[in-house]
Simulated scan of single mutants.
Amino acid sequence: MTTLDLAVAGLRTQLVDLHRELTRWNLVVWTAGNVSARVPGADLLVIKPSGVSYDDLTPESMVVCDLDGNLVDGELSPSSDTAAHAYVYRHMPHVGGVAHTHSTYASAWAARGEPIPCVLTAMADEFGGEIPVGPFALIGGDEIGRGVVDTLNGQRSPAVLMRNHGVFTIGSDARAAVKAAVMCEDVARTAHLACEIGQPIPIPQNAVDSLHHRYRNVYGQH
């Protein structure tokens, strides 16, 4: 096997595991949602096939597409969100993974067209501020991808709430994108509950900056 073949095989296996994380954290129902990964050193991505149950996903069922969303390798049709993922990869070279969910609380904020305010230290850590709202866009073409890129460019947040739709997250790799999706739903739920019982208190910007810097550069093992 070539180096490229090995990379694709590894990503296919990783994506099966990451889609199980979506169900583990209750971020998706039925066959909704998807995760993709950029293939290092190639203009390719690996993504979930369309309409296939999470229980039935295997490394062999994952499909490989070029960065225009065209099928390159695989027996099944790619996700209906493939064009959106491909657009993100074309226009955000630093992105190595994209995740999409319809998680309940975050999607409720998206339905209201309202960003999630930065009222928790966990939000400052992971998102560096509020989680922004992107425009309404129809599924199937690259319009969603355009909205994701336009909204996240210049933002520290790896997550965007696409209006009337759901969550798209980006990361240096697919695992980072899934982590952002998990964290997005967690803070969306807490922020919603805070709004139910009173008026949440925003974190001052200088504290947000300090928390985000510490999380990115000090927290964890290096």
Rank of each mutant, 00 (worst) to 15 (best):
Q155Y: 07
V160I: 12
T31M: 00
D68I: 02
G141N: 04
I144Y: 04
I170L: 14
D142P: 05
V16Y: 03
H212Y: 14
C184G: 01
L120M: 14
H212C: 09
G113T: 12
L211I: 15
P49D: 10
G96K: 01
S53L: 11
P204A: 01
T101F: 08
M1P: 06
E196A: 15
V64C: 09
G69A: 06
T23R: 13
Q14H: 08
P132T: 11
D209G: 02
A159N: 06
N26Y: 04
T31I: 12
A42V: 07
Q14K: 14
S210E: 15
G113W: 09
A32K: 02
T104K: 12
T23Y: 10
L161M: 13
I47T: 05
G147S: 10
V88T: 11
A32E: 12
D55V: 04
H212L: 07
C195M: 15
A188P: 12
T101W: 05
E185D: 13
D43N: 11
A188M: 13
K48W: 04
D68V: 05
D73F: 03
A191L: 06
P204D: 01
V218E: 14
V167P: 01
K179Y: 14
V64I: 12
H213L: 10
A37N: 03
A176K: 10
N153C: 10
P202I: 10
A207I: 14
E143R: 13
I116W: 02
L11C: 08
A42F: 06
M1G: 14
P49L: 12
T169I: 09
M123Y: 02
C118P: 04
H85Q: 13
Y87I: 01
G145R: 03
G147A: 11
T3R: 13
A207C: 03
T104A: 08
D142C: 09
L161K: 11
K179T: 10
V187K: 00
L18C: 04
A9Y: 00
M62P: 05
I139N: 12
Q205K: 11
T13G: 07
P200W: 13
P40M: 07
L67Q: 05
V35N: 00
A108F: 02
G154K: 13
G33A: 09
G154M: 13
I201G: 03
G128I: 09
G96M: 01
V95M: 07
V64E: 12
